[in-house]
Design a protein around this nucleic acid. Sequence first.
DNA 1: AGCGTTCTCCCATAAAGCTAGAAATATCGA
DNA 2: TCGATATTTCTAGCTTTATGGGAGAACGCT
Lengths: 113, 113
Amino acid sequence: MKLDDAAAHLEALGNPTRLKIYRALIRAGGAGLAVGRLQEKLKIAPSTLSHHIKALVVVGLVTQVRDATTLICHANYEVMRELVGFLVAECCTESAETADAKINAKTNAKTAA
Amino acid sequence: MKLDDAAAHLEALGNPTRLKIYRALIRAGGAGLAVGRLQEKLKIAPSTLSHHIKALVVVGLVTQVRDATTLICHANYEVMRELVGFLVAECCTESAETADAKINAKTNAKTAA
DNA sequence: AGCGTTCTCCCATAAAGCTAGAAATATCGA
DNA sequence: TCGATATTTCTAGCTTTATGGGAGAACGCT
């Protein structure tokens, strides 16, 4: 996963309402959850909810399957795993340190090259 | 970690520039990286950079230590670990499924309670 | 105290996001 | 086809964010 993709995913989840939506879908399990059910749970306007769901769908964190007039939403575990993988690999452990680490230890001290 | 806190952290990282800043700090290792060094790497206006760093500091993902006129920035591993922990526990694995899962499997089908 | 260095804060502007009401669309059953 | 249900799209207003120029503040050196 590229940095820009990771940022896009983080941004999508970086809103309390959208994070609640995503968590609700995780908790719903493999059965997923209809948009209407989400609307009942979160108590927000349908148009607002639709907007947020779309943001999650666009980045791939959520998928939708139509069942007659209702749309069932599913969390995409794979995308989340990739995102967490990026964070752990690039942004979490100290093992992410590159050769930069040693160089910077020196360059921090001086002003200009 | 509460959902709102997690969302705030995700939002802070959900910007390519800020994610680059954070990653650079991780790569810098324990020595950290001065604001000026970041500015050279990312090539953005000092005021813009300062804004982004502040956003990361506010949520605790980054800490700063002054060394004379320069400010050294450090990534806060602990906060990141908490964030990843939240994602894994609440939003990643299917083990996050609650009793909701079984209930929803039924309620998805019908319209009103 | 004066000076250079480093960085932040104030300000303004342009762009994007959030919210939601109302209209439009998709789908199925009668 | 008509109607009911479920959801999206359009539209609009308000708020927030991103960016950066320039003034100002923190700091150490002489």
